[in-house]
Amino acid sequence: MKKTLDLRGLSCPIPLLKTRDALAQADMVEVLVDELPPKENILKFAKSQNYKVEWTESGGEYRITVSK
C-alpha cells in the first residue's frame, strides 16, 4: 500500500517522524517537503534503514518516495 503525505512547512523533526510513522503502516510512502533539512533527514533515515529512496525536485519542493 502506498501513502502520500504533505509535510510542507512543518517544523523539524515532524516531517521525519510522520514519514517514519507512515512507513510502519505502509510499504511505500511518498512525502512532499519544501525545505532542505527535512529532505536530508528523511534521506538519511531511509538509508539507515536500508529502504529504497527516490526523490525529485520541482520549484523548491521535494517529492520523496521511500519504499521498504
Partner: peptide, 9 residues
C-alpha cells in the same frame, strides 16, 4: 492532524 493527500493501492 496531518491528513494524507491520498492513499493508493
Amino acid at each position: 492532524q496531518i491528513t494524507p493527500i491520498g492513499k493508493g493501492a
